[in-house]
């Protein structure tokens, strides 16, 4: 009797405790939105909707618009995903399926360790190593071969959108590839064996069995990497060039929301300036929220379609 009572009490306390942890997250989430909204009021009232579409960022005349940082954030994230998704899928497949067993653990650990490098180190590497390489070899080569495209025009400085995208690629590969590898490892052995038994090649097993089976997990891995790329601050600040210009060229410098905040927050005097920076933070928060929600909806719908 006594035993049973104690057990129930234990369960109740445990449930209450975990529920309070979980609701703590919800409270923090709402509190962030409320505070950002409240603090960005001066800017919202002054600029209204035009804040989102204006290209001006002028502290002298206190005219602020978020279009260039928004474009920079989305473009660098897009570039990073463009390069990182195929690379990470390849790495994950190799580690889960193709590599000899003795190689899997050291390789897997090495890739996970990449995630532990502080982002400022990636930034400095980008500035001191990757930037000059881009300026001296990659960009002249791209201009010579694909220079007729506007995205590969302009002077080769080695610092700009493309370099920022590449540094981000390297930073999100560990996240995407290690989660994807775990997803691939969870594909049931009988499924794969059945496919091999039907005469499928390794490529066909990967394409028709493993990737469809792990689709949700892979998407989750990609969103994890995307979240990291959207909000990455220090590494991007080092190599993006921090300039408020919009250009078709990927070689041109630009700016992202996070690097604008990192650069300007300490010295922003004047209420409108400060609240415009906070509104930028709100915009980043909303962008992340919208993209993740869309991803969830898309996943649900495609899962339903399959069923």
């Amino acid at each position: 009797m006594n035993m049973k009572k104690r057990k129930i009490w234990g369960d109740v306390i445990f449930r209450g405790l975990t529920a309070s942890f979980a609701s703590g997250i919800a409270v923090i989430f709402i509190a962030i939105i409320v505070v950002l909204w409240h603090q960005s009021q001066p800017s919202i009232q002054k600029f209204g909707f035009s804040f989102l579409v204006s290209m001006s960022w002028n502290p002298v005349h206190e005219q602020f618009g978020a279009l260039i940082p928004i474009a920079g954030t989305l473009l660098t994230t897009f570039l990073a995903l463009l390069f990182a998704i195929p690379l990470s899928l390849g790495i994950a497949l190799f580690l889960a399926e193709l590599a000899p067993h003795w190689l899997r653990t050291p390789f897997g650990t090495a890739i996970e360790l990449l995630a532990a490098i502080p982002s400022i180190v990636y930034g400095m590497w980008g500035l001191f190593v990757l930037g000059p390489l881009m300026a001296d070899y990659v960009q002249p080569f791209l201009k010579a071969t694909l220079g007729f495209l506007p995205i590969f025009s302009g002077s080769s400085m080695g610092i700009g959108m493309l370099t920022a995208g590449l540094v981000l690629t390297l930073m999100i590969i560990p996240f995407i590839s290690s989660v994807t590898r775990d997803v691939f490892l969870m594909v049931p052995q009988p499924l794969k064996e059945a496919a091999y038994g039907l005469g499928c090649t390794t490529w066909e097993v990967v394409r028709d069995v493993m990737i469809p089976y792990g689709r949700k997990g892979i998407a989750g891995a990609v969103f994890l990497g995307m979240g990291r790329a959207l909000g990455e601050t220090m590494a991007v600040t080092f190599v993006i060039g921090n300039a408020y210009h919009l250009s078709w060229s990927l070689f041109a410098p630009g700016n992202s929301i996070a690097s604008t905040l990192a650069n300007e927050f300490t010295e922003a005097d004047g209420q409108v300036y400060l609240s415009s920076l906070i509104e930028l933070g709100l915009v980043l928060f909303l962008i992340t929220l919208i993209i993740l929600s869309l991803a969830q909806i898309w996943l649900r719908r495609s899962a339903a379609g399959r069923a």
Binding site: S56, P59, V60, L127, F128, G131, M157, A243, A262
Partner: peptide, 30 residues
């Protein structure tokens, strides 16, 4: 453009801090 602690630069790259500007000038030809 005008005179302030931060301005709307007509052209160029932005480096963070004196050391950031020094690093960009050191790395970029011209």
């Amino acid at each position: 453009v005008g005179n302030d602690k931060a301005v709307e630069w007509p052209v160029g790259l932005g480096g963070k801090g004196n050391e950031g500007v020094a690093a960009f000038v050191g790395k970029v030809d011209g």
